[in-house]
């Protein structure tokens, strides 16, 4: 019997670039992201890199196809193009610009919440017959850290979250993974199909070279709508208002190490030691 194949689906999210400071709208109703620089969520880059490295390690026989998918507006094509340039074979955009909405989402330009992204990816998985889904552990805009876990729950697949290491076991449908947990590293063995979410130390995403960028332009991006996949977007949590956190502190500059020691003394922390 030939060794089992990894049919990989990678989810990528378009977010406001990490270096850009976002602002709230004047009426406190939401976040003003218009005309800001966007990029692929950094944790999703780790997921794309992990998929490409898996094929480099195991070869095209065991990793015959890597598909990237994004759930969002037309502008996500740019994000998918980046994934294609990194080595993904083809891409699917699930376009939400004209998504039918089941209720109060009507008229709002909010992005889909993690549960609906997970539902969409689950439906896409069943079309593509993927057996390994790679995602970032969280997106740096809403910081939810949920999509992978929700998806694994929906599909009833094994899950490896916050991963710093992924190793495929030889000739078997097993993965050995290291998870970055609060108290150190937890090691699990997972049986496919699996949902994996990637943490920072998993790899270093490759730079995109110009030839690869040009080659990516010839790779296909298929566009589907959420209704093609039988998913209706909902608002589960409505934003009532947004605020910036309370003003920063007033700093008192100390001039010498002696002043610092005196301050520590005054704070009472030297007595404890």
């Amino acid at each position: 019997m030939p060794p089992p194949c990894f049919r990989v689906l990678v989810g990528v999210k378009r977010v406001v670039d990490y270096a850009v400071k976002v602002r709230i709208t004047p009426d406190h109703s939401g976040v003003d992201t218009a005309n800001l620089k966007t990029s692929m969520n950094p944790f999703c880059e780790l997921a794309v890199e992990a998929a490409v490295q898996l094929r480099e390690r195991l070869g095209p026989e065991r990793v015959p196809e890597i598909v990237a998918a994004s759930v969002g507006p037309t502008a996500c094509q740019e994000t998918l193009r980046t994934a294609l340039a990194m080595g993904v074979d083809r891409a699917v955009l699930v376009n939400t610009d004209a998504a039918p909405v089941s209720d109060s989402k009507a008229g709002s330009a909010l992005q889909p919440e993690p549960l609906d992204v997970a539902r969409t990816l689950a439906a896409l998985q069943s079309r593509l017959q993927s057996n390994l889904i790679l995602l970032g552990k969280q997106a740096i805009d809403d910081d939810s850290n949920q999509t992978g876990q929700l998806l694994a729950g929906i599909l009833n697949w094994s899950q490896g979250t916050f991963l710093s290491k992924i190793e495929a076991e030889k000739e078997q449908d097993l993965l050995q993974v290291d998870r970055e947990v609060d108290e150190g590293i937890e090691r699990l063995r997972l049986r496919l199909p699996s949902v994996l979410t990637c943490d920072l130390r998993l790899n270093k995403p490759r730079y995109i070279t110009l030839p690869n960028l040009m080659r990516a332009k010839t790779k296909p991006i298929e566009t589907l709508s959420t209704s093609d996949l039988g998913v209706a977007l909902r608002t589960y949590w409505q934003i009532v208002r947004v605020d910036e956190p309370p003003a920063r502190r007033q700093v008192t500059m100390l001039k010498t190490v002696d002043e610092l020691v005196a301050k520590l003394q005054q704070l009472g922390v030297l007595d404890r030691a």
Partner: peptide
């Protein structure tokens, strides 16, 4: 709850099932 690494705080309300 926080958004964007805590640089924005969002007040959110549960929308009941329709």
């Amino acid at each position: 709850r926080p958004l964007y690494a805590g640089s924005i705080l969002a007040r959110v309300r549960l929308v009941p099932p329709s």
